[in-house]
């Protein structure tokens, strides 16, 4: 069973108030107030001096065990929201692998599920590990990376919905560890919301929370967990209002959702799950045996709703 061995997160120190985004993005005062007062999004992390490779490397360097375990790493899976982030053939993923001494691992990017790509990357990495033989140094491991730059308008904000922070994460996975075991994964894609799909943005807004509720319910069912048994929900940091309304829809107490990072980091693309996991661990919010749910929504052109249930 896929399990998390270690997680590291890197967020740039530089904080940017949402008001500072108004001029470069052409946002009105009303739009900025919507972000701050209605959605609870006050600032994001951005550092023009750090490249994508810098972000990924800093996250990976935070995995203190990686250096001693690196010979066991067989797969490096980069879960990325934006399908294309560098001109061809620039390849930050392989630059990072070389810098980390992971040239012996099979490395690839998994994308086109927008910000839900990280959960698919965990699922794929776990499945590949399950059929991988032991290495001479021990059971095989996978490194799941996330990390993105706010390099273009679509990567800076989602109109009336969210603002993006730059950041990255690195997560070591095993096929049989005991710390945070993946019990279930559910994913539902709604390609009709693609530019060629013909559906309206208004319909997407109406479908959003019911679709997320559906995959959460499915992940709970598959894991044999009830909503009341969840110790914690690690959300995507899209905004506060979405989660307040979702909690009302599914009957989940809002204090069960770790929303602290929404205000101060905003939406860190695919890294939200790991940013929130780190906070949960730092605050000692998870006890052995606790079950928690990770949720993600990829809402670019097309939409992907995903949820995972873990046991700590």
């Amino acid at each position: 069973m896929t399990a998390i061995e270690a997680v590291s997160v890197f967020l740039p120190q530089r904080r940017v108030p949402v008001e500072s985004l108004a001029a470069p993005l052409g946002l009105s005062d009303m739009q900025v107030r919507l972000f701050r007062r209605f959605h609870g999004l006050t600032e994001v992390r951005r550092d023009p001096g750090l490249s994508l490779t810098d972000l990924l490397l800093r996250a990976a360097h935070g995995l203190t065990a990686l250096h001693t375990l690196r010979r066991r790493v067989r797969f490096v899976v980069y879960g990325r929201a934006f399908p294309v982030v560098t001109p061809y053939p620039v390849n930050p993923l392989h630059e990072v692998c070389r810098a980390l001494g992971l040239g012996h691992a099979l490395a690839f990017t998994l994308t086109q599920q927008s910000c839900a790509s990280a959960l698919a990357a965990i699922d794929v990495a776990g499945r590949l590990l399950a059929s991988e033989p032991d290495t001479p140094d021990g059971p095989p491991l996978a490194l799941v990376l996330t990390g993105e730059k706010a390099f273009t308008r679509d990567a800076q904000f989602i109109p009336e919905t969210s603002v993006f922070s730059e950041g990255a994460s690195a997560c070591l996975l095993s096929a049989g560890g005991g710390r945070d075991r993946l019990l279930a994964y559910a994913c539902h894609q709604r390609g009709e919301f693609d530019v060629a799909g013909g559906e309206s943005p208004a319909r997407f807004q109406r479908a959003y929370r019911p679709a997320l509720a559906e995959v959460i319910g499915r992940a709970l069912e598959r894991s044999g967990t009830t909503l009341s048994e969840l110790r914690l929900v690690l959300p995507h940091n899209v905004n506060l209002m979405t989660w307040k309304r979702l909690c009302r829809l599914i009957g989940l107490p809002l204090d069960r959702v770790l929303l602290d990072n929404v205000t101060e980091t905003g939406h860190v693309f695919c890294a939200d799950a790991f940013v929130n996991y780190r906070t949960a661990r730092q605050r000692d919010l998870l006890r052995p045996g606790d079950r928690y749910l990770v949720a993600a929504v990829g809402a670019g052109d097309g939409a992907t709703f995903a949820a995972m249930v873990f046991e700590h």
């Binding site: 994308t111 086109q112 599920q113 693609d194 799909g197």
Partner: peptide
């Protein structure tokens, strides 16, 4: 910038899990 695989899931019988 398009999540093409998500769209392809929509036009493929079975609405499969999809990614690139």
């Amino acid at each position: 910038g398009r999540a093409t695989a998500a769209y392809l899931s929509h036009v493929c019988p079975g609405t499969p899990m999809s990614f690139a």
